[in-house]
Design a protein around this nucleic acid. Structure first.
Lengths: 204, 204
DNA sequence: ACCCTTGCTATACGCGCGTATAGGGGGCTA
DNA sequence: TAGCCCCCTATACGCGCGTATAGCAAGGGT
């Protein structure tokens, strides 16, 4: 049986990561995770102490895997700026978990977010990309890529694709990549939008 | 007292919108909402039947307000493409609620998401913005702006601003606006990232 | 042969939640 | 004044959750 390939502890952790990602922390009960992992509920407490303990274990595991993945890619030569779209299924899964964790609020997720912002800002500076507010842009960019992870099921649905499939995720990543390469609007359009709002405000 | 300015029903609805936005649906109890609105828990059931009923009322109210706001701006002349950053506090609040609702999963939020995608895609076509996958880009864009709403507290924290303040939101909106106007990377950079991943995959 | 640790299950407890119900009080109409 | 409806509160019920505890079976060291 493939569920016996790993220790019960690892199976619990993986099941928790899966369910936390899909449903969020609050909507996932200990017994749901136990059933998914094929163990009793008590074993989860035995291994992780509490639900929060399990959650922290999941956070650090996902975080470590992401760091490891990044180091391995770096060792192979080119540096991925980090904000660019992702084409790897495993990394997508873990990034989606982090997105969920950011929504649910966890220390590891906060650190992850700040780390991405730091890294992106550094990339901007090192590559001479001039902009009025580099850190602001880096933070906005991190939130945007987070949104892609968090709302990927909505994206898939809007595209008529099956949620969670590689097909849907790759299409989304490719489209996001296009958006990063081409300006979406001119300054004039943005200014017009600002003007319209100002006119509206003056009226009310 | 300012809490007496509105009917209890409206106060409950507004309190629910506030708390659902800040904490999410699951982490907000009926009694939390009742306390915030200054009423008893039973009154919520009296007016809305159930927690789900209250939630649907919040969804449709926020949805209606957003539509109304958009129509008023449209009536004043210029059309905001919809994906562009928002500079109005009330609209930001309601958009953030919708972002939360999308994460928590609600019918109204799904409809809202699809509506934004439809509108954005139409905008692309009407303005002759050529791209390989207009609908994919529209969906990705909707998810990205959703991410800005959902993760705005993380953005504020990363920027050292106080979460929820107009200052923080305006800085984020301005930065997002800049990102929409300027290409972030060249095709070559994206291609290099893709190559690095491919090399990594070949190795493992 | 003994025991003690480790991995695991079964069962119980208590709390907070959403839900249900009974009743009170003010303002309307007759 | 009497009756009624509508808001609104107080209280209770039951369920599912996270947590706690007791115990069992297997393995390894002494």
């Amino acid at each position: 049986m493939s569920t016996e390939d790993f220790t019960a502890r690892a199976r619990i952790r993986d099941a928790a990561i899966k369910l936390f990602t899909e449903r969020g922390m609050e909507k996932t009960s200990i017994l749901d995770i136990a059933a998914e992992a094929g163990v009793s509920g008590g074993l989860i407490r035995h291994h992780f102490g509490s639900k929060d303990g399990l959650r922290e274990a999941c956070d650090t595991h996902v975080f470590d895997e992401l760091v490891k993945f990044k180091e391995e890619v770096l060792a192979n030569g080119a540096a991925n700026p980090g904000f660019l779209p992702v084409f790897d299924a495993r990394q997508l899964r873990y990034r989606r978990y982090m997105g969920r964790a950011m929504v649910d609020g966890s220390a590891a997720a906060e650190a992850q977010f700040t780390g991405i912002v730091d890294e992106t800002e550094r990339y901007f500076r090192e590559h001479g990309m001039e902009m009025p507010d580099p850190r602001g842009a880096a933070a906005a960019l991190a939130a945007m890529t987070g949104g892609l992870m968090i709302l990927q099921d909505h994206v898939a649905r809007a595209l008529g694709e099956e949620p969670g499939t590689n097909e849907a995720m790759l299409r989304m990543s490719a489209a996001a990549g296009h958006l990063f390469l081409n300006p979406l609007a001119t300054t004039e359009v943005l200014e017009r939008a600002r003007e319209a709002l100002a006119a509206y405000r003056r009226k009310e």
